[in-house]
Amino acid sequence: MNATDVARYLKDHPDFLVEHGELFTQLTVPHPHGGQAISLAERQLHALRDKIRLLEGKLAELIRFGEENDEIGEKVHRLTLGLLEAEDYDGLRFALFENMRDDFAVPNVALRVWNSVLTREGEDFAPVSEEVRFFAGDLRHPYCGVPANLEIVDWFGDFAPHVRSVALVPLRREAQVFGLLALGSEEGERFYSEMGTLYLSRIGDLVASALRRQLG
């Protein structure tokens, strides 16, 4: 009989250890965190304690994620109210930029709009190259990562040389992209390729809806 046979026998006969409970104290195994020998009962107790610590760590992580999501949700809610209360385009732009900078701590914000029914003077409606339009049109989700497109980086003006990571959020009218919201940070890890984009997508939907209401 080998170890596999013994293990299989114990699984097939769960009452064995009940009928031979003295084995828990008579048999010894190495301590999981040291060299001394301990009983099977003590070993099981250590295993349970390790599992409890692991579960406590996962619970604490879930609570932290929940609190972070609640905080982000509150910020998105305030942005939504600001966009809804905006009476004109200037008010909409102010609400968007102020929320991104004050609530989300994004120091650099830029907006470009094209193919709208109404246009205005100002940098938000400055001409955009076909390359950028094609890039934005191909986005299925917000882009997060290094600022690879120099034209978009230049939208940040004097802060452009200091931008190390960006989030680029496409603004859609149904399936057509008509603009791009660009967020820039001096921190290289603020926006990274593996980060979740759920809230960025929702922000893009909110901004696009508000813009369509103002510009057609």
Results as ranks from 00 to 15, higher is better:
Ala7Glu: 09
Leu215Phe: 09
Ala110Lys: 00
Ala7Lys: 14
Ile63Glu: 10
Glu74Tyr: 10
Gln44Gly: 15
Ser209Glu: 08
Asp70Gly: 11
Gly66Pro: 00
Val113Tyr: 03
Leu180Thr: 01
Asp50Thr: 11
Val106Gly: 03
Phe16Ser: 04
Asn69Phe: 14
Arg93Pro: 12
Pro147Ala: 06
Arg202Ile: 04
Thr4Ser: 11
Gly157Met: 09
His13Gln: 10
Ser193Tyr: 15
Leu48Phe: 08
Cys144Glu: 05
Phe156Thr: 02
Pro142Glu: 01
Tyr192Asp: 07
Trp155Phe: 04
Ile52Lys: 13
Arg49Asn: 15
Ala3Ile: 14
Ile52Arg: 13
Gly216Arg: 04
Ala167Trp: 01
Arg101Pro: 06
Glu19Phe: 06
Asn108His: 15
Glu61Leu: 07
Phe191Trp: 01
Asp88Gly: 00
Arg49Gln: 12
Thr80Gly: 12
Val29Met: 05
Pro107Thr: 03
Tyr199Ile: 10
Gly34Asn: 11
Ile63Pro: 00
Arg172Glu: 13
Glu61Asp: 06
Arg120Ala: 05
Asp124Trp: 09
Phe134Gly: 15
His141Pro: 10
Phe125Pro: 02
Asn2Arg: 08
Gln26Ala: 12
Pro161Gln: 15
Asp102Lys: 11
Ala110Asn: 02
Leu17Ile: 08
Phe65Trp: 12
Gln26Leu: 13
Leu211Cys: 03
Thr119Asp: 11
Gly21Ala: 06
Ala7Asp: 07
Ala95Thr: 01
Gln176Arg: 15
Gly137Arg: 13
Gly73Thr: 09
His162Gln: 14
Leu181Val: 03
Ser39Thr: 02
Leu215Gln: 02
Val117Ile: 14
Phe94Gly: 07
Gly91Ala: 02
Thr4Arg: 10
Leu111Pro: 01
Leu139Asn: 02
Glu174Val: 06
Asp12Pro: 00
Pro32Asn: 01
Arg8Ile: 08
Gly122Cys: 02
Glu123Pro: 11
Glu22Thr: 08
Tyr199Pro: 07
Asn108Ala: 14
Ala160Val: 13
Leu200Phe: 10
Arg8Asn: 09
Pro170Arg: 05
Lys58Asp: 12
Ala60Ile: 03
Ala47Val: 12
Cys144His: 09
Val113Glu: 03
Asp90Glu: 06
Asp5Thr: 14
Asp102Gly: 06
Asp5Val: 11
Ile38Lys: 08
Leu181Arg: 07
Phe24Met: 07
Val166Met: 03
Asn2Ala: 06
Thr28Leu: 03
Glu187His: 14
Leu54Ala: 13
Ile63Trp: 09
Gly196Leu: 00
Val153Lys: 15
Thr197Cys: 12
Val113Lys: 01
Phe159Lys: 13
His20Thr: 07
Asn2Trp: 05
Asp205Pro: 11
Glu151Ser: 08
Leu81Thr: 11
Gly157Arg: 10
Leu198Pro: 12
Asp12Asn: 04
Leu23Tyr: 10
Asp124Ile: 05
Glu87Arg: 15
Pro30Phe: 05
Asp205Ala: 06
Met100Phe: 03
